[in-house]
């Protein structure tokens, strides 16, 4: 009895369509975001995250319309990330109906932005997305922050960075292993656990989910407060209900809906 671990389907949205690719290549169409979000809501998703990967600035406003439409019919928390750089970006997303806004690259280049955004809109509205890759293995593993879809190293230590972002007012961390993203090999559990045990704010594990046991491991071994997955839900491999059932069978507290 108590707080449920959350399952969060993630929708990568490009030019107003849900897409899914393996490590940002081989992009496949996965449907209309409003319909997909409604389906996950019916299946009992605890939240929905939209990651806007629209490249062209001409289509930057499409995501706002998507969020507006989803927020009028789906009454669970919505997070939107991708291309959030200034306070006005945050404001526009929140006004469109997002509850939380994910800040990624802008936090790396301007950490003060996280402070400003959380001071302005409250920590509960600010999720800092952290993309990390393992740079040292062995007894003293290390992970670093990468930008540009995992291609560019920043030299920032992932654990120190997570702590700093929590100190700067992030309400939550979305932690993605860029080594695992798109591989379906499961979360980087060592990374997840190291970050979860370093910060006091909630951590969402992301990157690499290929089956339901991976979700269980993210919580039980990774200590994550929430688990995020995309492709296993998009292509009908599993429903959110099945994911919750598996977690409950493993002794994890989840929200079971009718």
């Amino acid at each position: 009895m108590g707080l449920a671990k959350r399952i969060i389907p993630c929708l990568d949205v490009r030019d107003g369509r849900v897409v899914k690719g393996v490590q940002f290549v081989d992009i496949r169409d996965a449907g209309d975001p409003v319909e997909v979000a409604a389906r996950y809501d019916e299946q009992g998703a605890d939240e929905i995250t939209f990651l806007d990967i629209t490249a062209s600035s001409d289509n930057r406003d499409t995501i706002l319309h998507v969020v507006e439409e989803v927020a009028s019919t789906v009454f669970i928390p919505l997070t939107v990330g991708g291309g959030i750089r200034v306070l006005d970006d945050v404001r526009r997303m929140l006004n469109a109906g997002a509850d939380k806004v994910g800040i990624n690259t802008a936090a790396v280049f301007n950490p003060e932005f996280v402070k400003e955004a959380s001071d302005h809109f409250g920590s509960q509205a600010i999720v800092v997305s952290i993309d990390a890759r393992q740079v040292e293995t062995g007894d003293n593993p290390r992970w670093e922050i990468f930008t540009h879809g995992g291609r560019k190293a920043t030299g920032l230590d992932a654990l120190q960075w997570a702590k700093k972002m929590a100190d700067y007012g992030a309400g939550e961390i979305l932690l993605t292993s860029m080594d695992r993203d798109g591989t379906r090999d499961g979360f980087d559990l060592a990374l997840t656990r190291a970050v979860c045990d370093t910060v006091d704010i909630p951590v969402i594990a992301s990157g690499g989910v290929g089956n339901l046991d991976h979700l269980v491991a993210g919580v039980s071994e990774g200590h994550a407060d929430a688990v995020l997955a995309a492709s296993i839900f998009h292509f009908g491999d599993y429903t959110v209900q099945q994911a919750k059932q598996r977690m409950q069978d493993a002794g994890i507290e989840v929200r079971i809906t009718e």
Binding site: M1, G2, L3, A4, K5, R6, D46, S123, Q124, G171, E172, C196, D197, D200, I201, P202, V203, S220, H223, D225, A226, R255
Partner: peptide
């Protein structure tokens, strides 16, 4: 008790 660490704060998510 599951992690041996402090419960995450904020209290965020679905509770009874």
């Amino acid at each position: 008790p599951l992690t041996g660490h402090q419960y995450s704060i904020p209290h965020m998510g679905w509770n009874q």
